[in-house]
Design a protein around this nucleic acid. Sequence first.
RNA 1: GGUCGCGUGGCCGAGCGGUUAGGCAGUGGUCUGCAAAACCAUGUACAGCGGUUCGAAUCCGCUCGCGACCUCCA
Length: 489
Amino acid sequence: MEQKLKIYNTLKRKKQKFEPINPPFVGLYVCGPTVYGDAHLGHARPAVIFDLLYRYLKYLGYKVRYVRNLTDVGHLENDADEGEDKIAKKARLEELEPMEIAQRYINAYHKNMRQLNTIEPNIEPQASGHIPEQIKMVEQILEQGFAYEKNGSVYFDVEKYSEKYDYGKLSGRVVEDLKSNTRDLQGQTEKKNPFDFALWKKAEPEHIMRWDSEWSNGFPGWHLECSVMSTKYLGEQFDIHGGGLDLQFPHHECEIAQSTAATGNEAVKYWMHNNMITIDGQKMSKSLGNFIKLDEMFSGEHKLLEQAFNPQVVRFFMLQAHYRKPLDFSNKALKASEKGLNRLMEAMRVLEKLEPGKRSTVDISGIKEKCFTALNDDLNTPILIAHLFDGVKIINSVKAGKEALSKDDLTNLRALYSDLVYDVLGLTPEEEKANTQGNTEQLMQLLLKLRAKAKKNKDFETADAIRNELNELGINVKDTPDGAEWSMD
RNA sequence: GGUCGCGUGGCCGAGCGGUUAGGCAGUGGUCUGCAAAACCAUGUACAGCGGUUCGAAUCCGCUCGCGACCUCCA
């Protein structure tokens, strides 16, 4: 395995050669979703990008452990419906269990992830399942003197920490600036400094998810789970930590601080951040309410959508842009991706059927290298895809008889495209739906034979009627020099 | 306000000092009964103004516009 992969490390603000701590093993941790809502388009980006990274690392021969958490410890609150009969609500099963809500969204998330053809992580830990470990880390940080307790809550002492370590190294913040720029918010009177963050929070009555600890009945702070679960499953030092750019500060900065404060060691070697999906140039987010749920993308049921886009199109759309650039949603852009993807996948089918020539009339030796150069350059999938389309031209020319490929070249090209398109980019081949129904093929051949006969007799009315009605059934017929072909949507 | 980033042809989107990015759309052609697909050909792009350089979309400065983070957020 020749190692040329470079990735952009947010920590160093530059591309770096990827060198795992303990090759061939690679530890990869990615911040997953908060499971109190349906997944939207924005959630799909890190899922697809880090799935791509995972696939590529495996392709390169690394033994990767991919951990992606589920945040199920949040600010879930009771809505306290005043009008309802409180006594009736006491019935255990009539009240929604917090875990029931989380489970519902976890199930939905998993479904969406499968649709996007992402490989499931090796471990998908839930914050609620790691409360004892989180409590232990709070204790460790307290022991090291980088936290303080106040009224049952425990806060991280940023000022103390920054005397010894560099708080802000990931996000580029300076503690002095934070001091002057952080506004005083409500409920922060317990903190020594406004930029201190909670490690353990005493629960207010409306908080549903709560656990006992030596400090109070409460819940762990927002940033703690990732520090705890990443080091639990990947070790105190591991290779790659990924997540959305919006998590860089404070979430990831706090993670660094927590891990460093607890163990004295920084946990993560490479930090990778995907940029945001925007809509009309603005970040798609829950708080802005301008997001499109993945289910809506796939069904087309959203006021901004002119049509449904299948998950593969959404995946391809994201791969056509570089992961560190913002990507703006629009129907036009998605439609262009849909067409492009169809063209690529059509070429994949053509490639399988190509007959080898005596010798090659085109040089394909450079394609492979170009493709991997692009991938190795911080996962530059837009460039990779551009090269793949160059190959599509060649494939089509061979099919048209204008060019030829030797047997070896054809074999190599097939292997390359299969590796890149299916295995690395994670685009799925069209299933052979046609053959699932036993004698469909024979029936189709019968119809096409009748249609060919009609055409021969210049009975185009009948020929077109057959084609149009098949079309309505989702079957496309196209005439080629070698006779008619058919395919299903 | 502080910190960071971006502004590329009709749309999306690469590019990191000198060579065609690519996709979609458009136009002309080949093929076709018609479609579709495919193939061939086809575009005075780099926010503006200065500067550095033999040479800048690419480096520097300023101006304008947009966005992200600083609060839960992928």
